[in-house]
Nucleic acid binder design. Structure first.
Lengths: 231, 231
DNA sequence: TCTCATAATTAGTATAGACTAACTAGTTCT
DNA sequence: AGAACTAGTTAGTCTATACTAATTATGAGA
């Protein structure tokens, strides 16, 4: 029998940059990123995270409080934002210029973001007209490493009566993304919160300007991150 | 003292696919690819090549005759052609759609070819109109893994009167290579066969467009592999 | 306060690449 | 044929990632 071409089930290997990205996301609400959460996000075992955490804090990219968690240093934050810029520019480019749809673009960008040069990213950004938001509505960090800080509220938590702009959809799940798209719930859409049923019930919203109502169950409403529209 | 961010001088890591590509090129004239030539092409030490050669022949991608060299199996050839397709499509896409110039595109493609999906390559190929040749005139293998065989003829065997492009110099000998270079006989040069003397005598050629004549003895003329230029 | 469940860490190993130093096979020259 | 040079291989390490199994720290409930 012919030996296998390669191990059919190799452990997937995440890079330093992947760790920094998820630490950025997990600690964006100001706290520490926990080992087990990092492990879950990267689909890797907790000991693998402990090992990487040690290397990363030795090189000054994160700070580690044992048994507590981990936060980015300013250096680590810079590196994370650089990767996030790459990822979001790639997603936009692939959707706008190569016909990818939003649901499938993530995995491609995830691989490419490690291989492209800064030069190529900036060429893509130019071809896109220096965009500020990616297809999911997330802000794209600048080449200098600044990112727009927007306070976003989950639809599930928004007060009845407020007017909102849908800014980002907090999932990569293709089926949910497709459903949201069918419902007209794509980033940029304006809506008002009409009603919320008690006991963690669904939220009813009205799309602006059409006024069409939508009823969104609690689970999905927690994925829709919105920005309150001022006067 | 702050520890270094990472080893400032890490060994560069070539992948299986890089090895297959250079083996493809080195053995394209039907012979074996030598360990030291592979090492030189990949800028890696000879023992590294020996190690990779062992793995590659265990998995059936190459055949190894110790102290002789290495050849691709049909499986290895398929894998090599897949990478060559990726590389050439990428180079073409980057030059045509993102303003790269032909000199700088190689390194970018070299990194991307390992990260892109087949799907993305086919989208790029569509955007380019399913091209058959890259800007050097090298044929792009099809997605199915076929490549137009450019038949190379040794200058010593070319018919008088034909117009040729010098494609490959079939020796590693430094003195001969230097001599060829002095004579202006480097890959890419165009020439016509003016005359051949009988009894395995020398071939006289005229360089195009200068028209300068060169007389090439039989031994050397057998090292100069040329492609016939069609009408 | 003590115990226990859970989360995190350490210990020990694997894999795929790299390297240098040392050894061997093949070739060429006298 | 034998010596000497060259190319190739083997042996032994290194690095960065991963894993499982075993251990330890923390915090919550009795």
């Amino acid at each position: 029998m012919q030996p296998a071409l390669r191990d059919p089930n190799p452990p997937l290997t995440r890079s330093v940059e992947d760790y920094l990205k998820v630490i950025y996301h997990l600690s964006s609400q100001g706290g520490f990123a926990a080992t087990s959460d990092i492990a879950a996000m990267l689909d890797v075992s907790p000991p693998s995270v402990s090992g990487m955490v040690k290397r990363l804090s030795e090189t000054g990219l994160i700070e580690h409080v044992p048994y507590r968690g981990v936060q980015l240093t300013s250096q680590g934050r810079r590196a994370a934002l650089r990767m996030i810029r790459r990822h979001r520019i790639l997603e936009l480019y692939l959707t706008q210029h190569l016909g990818y749809d939003w649901g499938s673009v993530h995995a491609e960008a995830e691989r490419l973001e490690h291989a492209v040069s800064d030069d190529l990213i900036e060429r893509m950004a130019s071809a896109l007209g220096q965009p500020q938001y990616d297809p999911h509505g997330d802000p794209i960090p600048t080449a200098a490493g600044d990112i727009e800080e927007t306070e976003l509220v989950a639809l599930a938590d928004a007060r009845v009566g407020t007017k909102l702009e849908l800014r980002q959809v907090g999932t990569q799940d293709a089926a949910r993304l497709r459903y949201f798209a069918e419902q007209g719930l794509t980033p940029g859409v304006l809506l008002t919160v009409s009603e919320r049923q008690p006991f963690n019930g669904p939220t009813t919203i009205a799309l602006v300007p059409s006024g069409e109502p939508r009823v969104v169950g609690r689970e999905l409403a927690q994925l829709l991150w919105c920005q309150e529209i001022g006067a």
